[in-house]
Design a protein around this nucleic acid. Sequence first.
DNA 1: GGCATATTCAAGTAGATGCTTGAATTTTGT
DNA 2: ACAAAATTCAAGCATCTACTTGAATATGCC
Lengths: 238, 238
Amino acid sequence: MSRHKKSMGSTPGGHDAKKELFDGFASVAKVMSSGRRAEIVDVLAQGERPVDEISREIRQSIANTSQHLQLLLRAGLVKSRRDGTRIYYSLSGPAVIRLWAAVRDVAVEHLAELDDLATSYLGDRSSLTTMTRDELRERIGDGDLMLIDVRPEAEFRAGHIAGAASVTIKELETRLDQLPNDRLIVAYCRGPYCVYADNAVRILTRHGMKAARLEEGFPEWKEAGLPVEASNTNASGA
Amino acid sequence: MSRHKKSMGSTPGGHDAKKELFDGFASVAKVMSSGRRAEIVDVLAQGERPVDEISREIRQSIANTSQHLQLLLRAGLVKSRRDGTRIYYSLSGPAVIRLWAAVRDVAVEHLAELDDLATSYLGDRSSLTTMTRDELRERIGDGDLMLIDVRPEAEFRAGHIAGAASVTIKELETRLDQLPNDRLIVAYCRGPYCVYADNAVRILTRHGMKAARLEEGFPEWKEAGLPVEASNTNASGA
DNA sequence: GGCATATTCAAGTAGATGCTTGAATTTTGT
DNA sequence: ACAAAATTCAAGCATCTACTTGAATATGCC
């Protein structure tokens, strides 16, 4: 309650109802306007996680992570559930995944400096073979292709692309002999800006194997309504 | 350059490249995190406009409006072009419209208080007949339906749904006799949270005519790739 | 050139934000 | 009931944000 320059609202209600409504919309964007909260959303898009794991993931103090989560909660982007002494957070619905994807899309298309930022985080991607979602969907049953999920195992257990095998990057080098030499290996992880799959493809090609990365990640696959499965031992492992 | 608690970046590049990348994504959301800038995006989704018109539309000083536009410009959400002494701003691409739609969707689905805010701005919508985009698309050629665009005429000229007639709310009451009594009149305006169409439907039904509002607005119609047309006299009129 | 119009720039202020540290709360295991 | 673990709450500080006012810039018209 402060300024009033001209008359009032456009037509109906009364005071500055329009301002308040648009402030309401903006509050959703505001909560995504922190890089740390964006990281949180990116992680939670893989499945629910307790506070301390999220805090480690985004490399912030637990108190600070908790406050970010409170904000996300108040804005309705995430929900929480208690299990014993832990509190698990997860995205409140698929609309949030679409929002996060829309933010990235705009950044990629229209933010000049983003290419540099991405390159400095992900390294040079020009030599990586990639595969689109549609291409994978068509070839996934063909038998001349193996699909590996290179995210942390807990996320694989919480949900993964149907038919994928879990091979974390940590294990990758030691399990090379278990991977086929004659088939194309497709790796995927959290999303288009996740390093795991890039690294996996680099390691595999360095060892003379045929490898490609799925351009997007698990959340986009699931959001598109494509087949997923879960090894539901218990949402998120230790 | 301040905090460093644990080690460093996740895997590749080096320093805090991940932090910077996600800060980059977040900067896109940040620019949408002001209600006033959201209003600007909502207006620019209808077509390009000069600064002073935008300033009037959002009921803010010209200086303040200009600063908001600078921010939107730096973040890549809008572009500008000079024509004589005026500078016209417009959205930089369809991804921005998708972003704005995603923000609204999340707000509607997950923000508890939004219903109240919307009701206080738009009034009680429960008695309004509505029509979905798909329904309109199917029935638009049938002849038992008239489509009217109730936005300001400048926006109609910049682009409108193919087959629509321009009838601003100001004119509406005086032009009632020009509207059919036996056909359903469908009104649309800027988007799902635009008051014009609501008011038009209320006026029409009060006068005993059959009327409905299109649930969404022109930008969503265009974004869906459905047929549009323009009376290109000159983008935005005076 | 000089005046008018449209827009941007610059400086100032009240208020919000992100992170920190340390204490308070809630649940589990004994 | 008591200690341990996970999380939240509260206070504090440095920084950033939104708006205001007034001056500066750029274009068009005479």
